[in-house]
Amino acid sequence: GATAVSEWTEYKTADGKTYYYNNRTEESTWEKPQELK
């Protein structure tokens, strides 16, 4: 299949934890999204 550009962006909180934000759905998660595995 075609490689889609991930909708997920990786961010870090002030205390250094990583989370992921989906630009399309406006969803955020602590877990690494399936698309990034």
Rank of each mutant, 00 (worst) to 15 (best):
G1W: 08
G1F: 11
G1Q: 13
G1H: 13
G1L: 13
G1T: 13
G1Y: 10
G1R: 13
A2C: 15
A2H: 13
A2K: 11
A2T: 12
A2E: 13
A2N: 12
T3K: 12
T3P: 13
T3Q: 14
T3F: 09
T3Y: 05
T3R: 12
T3D: 13
A4G: 11
A4N: 13
A4W: 06
A4K: 11
A4H: 13
A4V: 14
A4E: 12
A4L: 11
A4T: 14
A4D: 14
V5W: 11
V5M: 12
V5N: 11
V5Q: 14
V5H: 14
V5R: 10
V5E: 14
V5T: 13
S6P: 11
S6H: 10
S6M: 08
S6V: 09
S6Y: 07
E7N: 06
E7Q: 06
E7Y: 07
W8Y: 02
W8V: 01
W8D: 00
W8Q: 01
T9E: 11
T9K: 10
T9R: 09
T9M: 11
T9F: 10
T9S: 10
T9L: 10
E10M: 05
E10V: 08
E10T: 06
E10I: 07
E10H: 02
Y11F: 14
Y11V: 14
Y11Q: 09
K12F: 10
K12L: 12
K12P: 03
K12S: 07
K12H: 11
T13H: 03
T13W: 01
T13S: 07
T13R: 03
T13A: 07
T13P: 00
T13Q: 04
T13N: 08
A14G: 06
A14F: 03
A14I: 10
A14V: 12
A14P: 13
A14D: 09
A14Q: 09
A14Y: 03
A14W: 06
A14M: 08
D15V: 02
D15S: 07
D15C: 13
D15R: 03
D15W: 06
D15M: 04
G16I: 00
G16N: 04
G16W: 00
G16V: 00
G16L: 01
K17R: 14
K17P: 01
K17M: 07
K17F: 06
K17H: 09
K17S: 06
K17C: 15
T18H: 06
T18Y: 10
T18A: 08
T18L: 10
T18W: 06
Y19T: 02
Y19I: 13
Y19D: 03
Y19A: 05
Y20L: 00
Y20H: 00
Y20K: 00
Y20N: 00
Y20A: 00
Y20Q: 00
Y21M: 03
Y21K: 08
Y21D: 03
Y21P: 03
Y21R: 04
Y21V: 12
Y21L: 03
Y21G: 02
N22P: 02
N22A: 00
N22M: 01
N22E: 02
N22W: 01
N22R: 00
N23L: 10
N23W: 14
N23H: 15
N23A: 14
N23T: 14
N23E: 14
R24V: 15
R24A: 11
R24H: 10
R24S: 11
R24G: 06
R24M: 11
R24L: 15
T25R: 02
T25A: 01
T25D: 01
T25Q: 01
T25P: 01
T25S: 04
T25G: 01
T25N: 02
T25V: 02
T25W: 03
E27P: 00
E27T: 05
E27Q: 08
S28F: 15
S28K: 15
S28Y: 15
S28V: 15
S28H: 14
S28Q: 11
T29Q: 12
T29K: 06
W30L: 08
W30N: 08
W30M: 09
E31Q: 08
E31G: 04
E31I: 10
E31M: 05
E31F: 08
K32S: 05
K32L: 09
K32E: 09
K32F: 06
K32T: 09
K32Y: 07
K32I: 12
P33H: 02
P33N: 02
P33V: 01
Q34S: 13
Q34M: 12
Q34K: 09
Q34N: 15
Q34H: 10
Q34L: 12
Q34Y: 10
Q34G: 10
Q34V: 13
E35W: 06
E35L: 04
E35F: 08
E35Q: 09
E35P: 05
E35Y: 07
E35I: 05
E35D: 11
E35S: 10
E35N: 09
L36W: 08
L36R: 06
L36E: 07
L36F: 09
L36T: 07
L36M: 11
L36I: 10
L36P: 06
K37T: 14
K37I: 15
K37F: 12
